[in-house]
């Protein structure tokens, strides 16, 4: 785990490129549009970070703190976001195709217009999250908590086996 927080974008990118992203303190950092594909950021603190438009293809973010992060239009295909904290994160328009969202926490997260094709949000906690207009084709919400979630306008057939949908809008 890194103890020194990078002071700016270039330091942060250098830290990640050197393999020092695991557990790194990257709070509020601006990584918008950055190419972080395949990087390992397990357990990193990216709360409040700007990752809009970033390339997170196959990026490993298990257990990362992404609360209040901006991931609008980010490419998160095949990203490993299991057990991450996406509370209030903005993922509108993001590409989450085949993303691992197992056990992810995302109260009030915004997935509106995102593509969640064949993603794996099993056992995720997405209370009051918005999936308005999202593509949820083949997404596997098995045992996920979608209480109060907004699924209006979401397209495609998803698997909601044993999911909690109390108060969800469909």
């Amino acid at each position: 785990m890194s103890n020194t927080a990078p002071e700016d974008r270039s330091e942060a990118l250098a830290l990640i490129a050197s393999g020092g992203g695991i557990g790194a303190d990257l709070r509020n950092i601006d990584l918008s549009g950055a190419d972080l594909h395949g990087a390992r950021l397990s357990g990193a603190n990216l709360s409040g970070a700007n990752l809009s438009g970033a390339n997170l293809f196959e990026t490993i973010l298990d257990g990362a703190n992404l609360a209040d992060a901006n991931l609008t239009n980010a490419n998160c295909e095949f990203a490993l976001l299991g057990a991450a904290d996406l509370t209030r994160a903005n993922l509108s328009g993001a590409n989450l195709k085949r993303a691992n969202l197992v056990g992810t926490k995302g109260h009030n997260a915004n997935f509106s217009g995102a593509n969640l094709y064949y993603s794996r949000p099993g056992n995720a906690d997405f209370q009051n999250a918005s999936f308005q207009g999202a593509d949820i084709t083949r997404a596997i919400f098995r045992r996920a908590n979608l209480s109060g979630a907004n699924l209006s306008g979401a397209i495609g057939q998803a698997n909601f086996e044993n999911a909690t949908l109390d108060g969800a809008q469909r």
Partner: peptide
């Protein structure tokens, strides 16, 4: 589908 970790699969 996507990769995972042992911890995630054990716990979730």
């Amino acid at each position: 589908g996507p990769s995972s970790t042992v911890a995630i699969e054990k716990r979730y």
